[in-house]
Design a protein around this nucleic acid. Structure first.
Lengths: 248, 248
DNA sequence: CAGTGGTCTAGACCACTGC
DNA sequence: CAGTGGTCTAGACCACTGT
């Protein structure tokens, strides 16, 4: 007899239960920005190994409830920032109202998938504009915008060698084309080393990857891969007011 | 003796290096659907602890490169499925062309955030339609669609008590309203217990949460929270052909 | 039943932050 | 420098799948 069947069954993993308990505590006993006890203390308090506690914290961080910084501590995260990514059909990057900040422009060969999309041979260098998006004092996204040189109108005057000036010059030339539409896709990814640095996250952090194809005169003239911090932002495709958060 | 400083420095975590090596191996030596060696063997082969190997596998799974099933093994995942989620401005859920399958409809109180959105008191029960989306033989998303009873036209005849019939009847009544627009947002979340079961994933798996607000006559008449498997799908907002994958 | 991935432990050391 | 989160180990056991 006596297979275990006391008050509680245990098909529910410890870290799951921990997450639930912590989540409720966050709602009721903590306020945004407030620091949690450190992991060793929390683990001891709940009577679990630190690794188990960390599994729970990992999930809460994934859901945007917590913010952890090495050497500093764990704090309660503010609600996610809504970032509008609805395709504005008839505009190019850099158009008025575009809040991205172009930081550099180099000629490099794009990733294979992007090369296919642009219809250029692999290894072919294309103009690559680097941009960042900062909202509420926080860096939320970085973007690589790839434009084959052949589609760009000739420059008006001299072209800056590099840096933000060159980036803005290239965008200005792109804007002279007749915009023909955009395709967009969102998927989950993890931050590469460089992206992680720009976004002030650790490598491998979850990110939302938005790929966009820009069309003009029936052909793909540019493609961008934008990387958004998944912990801090919510991508909105609203025509109207932004939505509130999901269940809490 | 001598502190280590051979050919390689090691600011790079082991799991990160592992991930890179495995990723290349997947590209060159494996094909979709093929099984990997089991975790204990892989860990031994790379000379790391299983937990470390699992950190690498976790990331590859997050990126949609691998598929793991308890009791079965780890296989190479097919490319992500593109799912169109572009708001079709002038249609309601259940309109012709809508491939979601309504499975049930119950009256329950929505999560607080949804109640606020709908402008109904918390605890107020609303019609809740449950739907699932199946693509290529695979369950990729589940949705809760919340509709306050007051906005719905009166039924034509008798209303089924429950099940798919009731769900379809409610959707049919919703479709009689004049559609006025939609807002949409995408964010990262983790699957709850029930969602996980529907999506054939473990609880806590990463998911893409799409919240939609439906408007008619200037007021919010419905809201939905759809949960997509983040590992297997890519949300597209295309007007035209779908995009190819991100860098590989 | 044997074999797989999932959970958990109790340690250790490292990398980073701030004082 | 002390304190934090991040990485890593070498085990153990559990839950699930297929045969």
């Amino acid at each position: 007899m006596g297979t275990t069947q006391l008050g509680e069954q245990q098909p529910e993993p410890k870290y799951w239960h921990l997450k639930t308990v912590l989540s409720q505590a966050l709602d009721t006993e903590f306020s945004v920005g407030q620091a949690l006890p450190n992991e060793r203390e929390l683990a001891a308090r709940f009577g679990v190994a630190r690794a188990t506690l960390r599994q729970a914290l990992d999930q809460l961080e994934l859901e945007g409830r917590l913010q952890r910084r090495r050497g500093v501590g764990t704090t309660v995260a503010p609600p996610r920032v809504g970032v509008d990514v609805s395709p504005r059909q008839h505009t190019w990057p850099g158009a008025p109202g575009d809040t991205w900040v172009a930081t550099d422009c180099v000629r490099v060969s794009p990733p294979p998938a992007v090369a296919r999309l642009l219809g250029v041979p692999p290894e072919e260098p294309v103009e690559t504009v680097l941009r960042g998006l900062i909202t509420q004092g926080q860096s939320v996204a970085v973007e690589h915008l790839y434009i084959p040189s052949v589609v760009l109108p000739a420059p008006d005057g001299r072209v800056p060698a590099a840096g933000g000036d060159r980036a803005r010059e290239v965008l200005a030339r792109l804007r002279r084309l007749e915009p023909g539409g955009q395709d967009r896709a969102v998927e989950l990814g993890s931050a590469g080393a460089e992206e992680a640095r720009s976004l002030d996250r650790l490598p491998g952090s979850p990110v939302l990857i938005v790929t966009t194809r820009y069309v003009a005169a029936g052909r793909t003239v540019a493609a961008s891969v934008a990387t958004y911090r998944a912990d801090t932002c919510r991508l909105t495709f609203g025509n109207q007011a932004p939505l509130s958060l999901t269940a809490r």
